[in-house]
């Protein structure tokens, strides 16, 4: 296993370095190639300022288990600087650096989330109340963009299943639909009709309650920065990054498959399932390999793994399905 720390200016190293300094055992876990998903909070208190430390207590004994596999691949987490300065978030512009530059204008407090559809508990909740019932966990996941680049990211959040069960979906709930905030005055990209705003995403209910699906509020133990989807975003590590909808304001349980933004924009490129699959190319480019951000200049490509390496946890969801058709 190659563990090469990416070369970055000293001024930008601090957060991740401090972070890993505090938790030396984590480094050894990484070196072993299997990384535990960590952390449990006993009171999820989310402070308002992006980048501020999250108040969650860490307890290794309650860690969920090994979630990052593939010990043959470079699994050094990307730096805070990389994760927060290379984003696809078209609500703020189509360049990778636009989100870091313009996302600060989005007001993430106060924030409310509406739960609707086929569930017993529905309504509109303030973010603080919405998050109160849950403990925060930390999980280090591979992140694979459909553009064939990838990162390894330590998220902080709540398992989606835990959150969804809280609203007691009925038997008619076959899908979960998510919707982003629509605020053209604060999100300059939304003034351009590149995509159909607001951004929409969705999962089949069995995908949504898979233990890997994760609702994120933090990064590197800190409050999620706006460019990464604050205050609340979805992470589905076995799917392409665009499934991870950001700045969520609405969650609805539906009987039918909900429309999803990229799929509507280019149905032959982006499917509803969008599972990471090296065998199914996107018409304009191959998905066989990926560029791990932060790798050295030469030999920067590595093989892309089926389901982004999470096949053991998720392959059962697609048994018997033609994944070329349902890409």
């Amino acid at each position: 296993m190659t563990t090469r720390i990416p070369r970055i200016p000293p001024s930008q190293i601090t957060p991740s370095e401090v972070y890993f300094g505090r938790r030396a055992f984590l480094a050894s876990a990484l070196a072993a190639g299997t990384t535990a998903a960590l952390g449990r909070a006993h009171a999820a208190v989310v402070p308002a300022r992006a980048g501020a430390p999250l108040a969650y207590s860490y307890d290794a004994a309650e860690s969920v288990g090994a979630l990052v596999h593939a010990p043959d691949q470079n699994e050094t987490p990307n730096t805070w600087h990389q994760i927060t300065n290379y984003n696809n978030y078209y609500e703020f512009g189509t360049s990778k650096t636009d989100p870091a530059e313009y996302a600060g204008r989005l007001q993430t407090r106060p924030w409310s989330i509406t739960v609707a559809g086929e569930a017993e508990r529905t309504g509109t909740f303030a973010l603080e109340d919405f998050l109160k019932p849950y403990a925060l966990e930390e999980r280090i996941y591979r992140f694979r963009c459909v553009e064939a680049w990838s990162m390894v990211i330590p998220w902080v959040g709540i398992p989606l299943a835990t959150m969804l069960k809280h609203f007691r979906p009925t038997s008619r709930a076959k899908y979960v639909a998510f919707e982003s905030v629509y605020r053209p005055s604060q999100m300059r990209g939304q003034r351009v009709p590149i995509l159909q705003w607001p951004y929409r995403e969705g999962l089949r209910i069995d995908e949504a309650i898979n233990p890997l699906a994760f609702m994120v509020v933090g990064l590197y133990g800190r409050v999620l920065p706006n460019q990464n989807g604050a205050p609340l975003r979805l992470i589905v590590p076995w799917k392409y990054g665009f499934k991870g909808i950001k700045a969520i304001v609405r969650i609805a349980f539906t009987e039918t498959q909900p429309p999803t933004t990229w799929n509507q924009a280019r149905p032959n490129y982006y499917g509803f399932y969008a599972n990471v699959n090296p065998d199914v190319p996107t018409p304009s480019w191959s998905q066989r390999t990926e560029v791990r951000i932060g790798n050295p200049f030469f030999h920067q490509r590595q093989a892309t793994l089926m389901f982004n390496g999470y096949g053991k946890e998720v392959a059962y969801l697609y048994r018997g399905m033609n994944l070329r058709k349902y890409f």
Binding site: P9, H81, Q82, N85, Y86, K96, T97, W149, V291, I293, G294, F297, Q300
Partner: peptide, 14 residues
Amino acid sequence: FGWLGCSDGVDPVK
């Protein structure tokens, strides 16, 4: 090389 305050960003190859 990060000279003169320039930067090619997080993915310099691209």
